[in-house]
Simulated scan of single mutants.
Amino acid sequence: MKALWNALGPVWAWPVVIALASAIGLVTALLGDGPWDWVSWLCLGSVTGACVWLGWGRGR
């Protein structure tokens, strides 16, 4: 199991985190109200921020 993590962990760790944040943000935006709106904004905003940050970093 450790060998598998050493092989795949560095490649897939951040994509999995971004996918989970996107899924949590979308589900809470659709099903929740009140405080759940803040959770959805936080999750989806962090995904957007990460994409913008990485996009600007790649262009330099």
Rank of each mutant, 00 (worst) to 15 (best):
G32N: 09
V39P: 01
P10V: 10
L8Y: 15
A29C: 09
N6Q: 13
L4H: 01
I18Q: 08
A29L: 15
C43T: 01
A50S: 11
L20V: 15
L30F: 11
L30G: 11
G49Q: 02
C51L: 15
W36V: 02
D37K: 06
C51R: 09
R60W: 12
D33V: 12
N6R: 13
M1K: 07
G59Y: 07
W12K: 04
W5C: 11
W56N: 12
G9K: 05
W38P: 00
A21E: 05
W53L: 03
S40M: 04
A3E: 13
S46L: 12
A13V: 14
G59W: 09
V27D: 05
V39Y: 06
V47N: 02
C51Q: 12
A19E: 01
G32L: 04
W5D: 04
V27K: 11
G57V: 01
N6A: 12
W41L: 13
K2M: 13
W56A: 15
A7D: 15
W12Q: 03
V39W: 03
G49T: 09
P35K: 08
P10M: 15
C51K: 06
G25R: 02
N6M: 10
I18P: 00
S46I: 05
V39N: 00
A19N: 08
V11R: 14
W5S: 03
A23Y: 10
W12C: 14
L8S: 12
T48R: 11
G45T: 00
G25L: 03
V11Y: 10
G57D: 12
V47P: 08
I18A: 14
D37M: 11
G9R: 05
R58N: 06
W56F: 15
I24N: 03
R60P: 07
W38L: 12
G57S: 11
V11W: 10
I18H: 00
M1H: 09
G32Q: 08
V16A: 15
K2R: 14
I24A: 11
D37F: 07
P10Q: 14
A23C: 14
P10S: 06
A3N: 09
L44P: 03
T28D: 08
D37V: 08
L42W: 03
L30V: 08
V11P: 01
A7E: 15
D37C: 02
A23V: 15
P35D: 04
V52H: 00
A50V: 14
L30E: 09
R60A: 14
L54F: 04
S46G: 10
N6W: 04
L54G: 05
T28K: 04
V39D: 00
P35E: 09
G45H: 02
L26M: 12
G57W: 00
G9E: 07
D33Q: 09
A50G: 07
A29R: 13
G9Q: 06
D33I: 06
K2Y: 02
D33S: 13
W12R: 06
L42Y: 00
R58W: 13
W41C: 05
P35T: 11
A13F: 13
I24F: 06
L31T: 04
T48E: 05
V27E: 09
G32C: 09
L54I: 14
G57I: 00
D33L: 11
